[in-house]
């Protein structure tokens, strides 16, 4: 389409875009910023606490690390004392 011919659609676009005041532009921009900030905040919260919540559910359902894995446990078997084949009867 040649650019030098009249285009009422373009004129209409200019007319309607001109209704967008600086005030509205600023208002919308700050709303977007605050929404994006909220999304980032929620994202950080999820990132920080989700693994802990997940761990809590694992513990509640009876899971978690084996007691023999606790290094500070005096009853912990040393690696040499552990049976080589734990599922076999000596």
């Amino acid at each position: 389409m040649p650019t030098n011919i009249k285009n009422s659609f373009k004129e209409l676009q200019e007319e309607e875009s001109a209704k967008f005041s600086d005030h509205s532009q600023q208002k919308i921009r700050s709303s977007i910023d605050s929404n994006v900030g909220l999304f980032h905040f929620l994202g950080e919260i999820v990132e920080l606490y989700l693994p802990k919540i997940f761990g809590m559910f694992v513990k509640m359902s009876g899971g978690g690390p084996s007691p023999t894995d606790d290094i500070n446990n005096p009853n912990r078997l040393s690696d040499n004392d552990r049976p080589k084949y734990p599922n076999t009867i000596d």
């Binding site: 676009q13 309607e16 875009s17 967008f20 532009q25």
Partner: peptide, 9 residues
């Protein structure tokens, strides 16, 4: 933003 606003109007 002005173009998008114009289209929305």
């Amino acid at each position: 933003s002005p173009k998008i606003f114009g289209k929305c109007v």
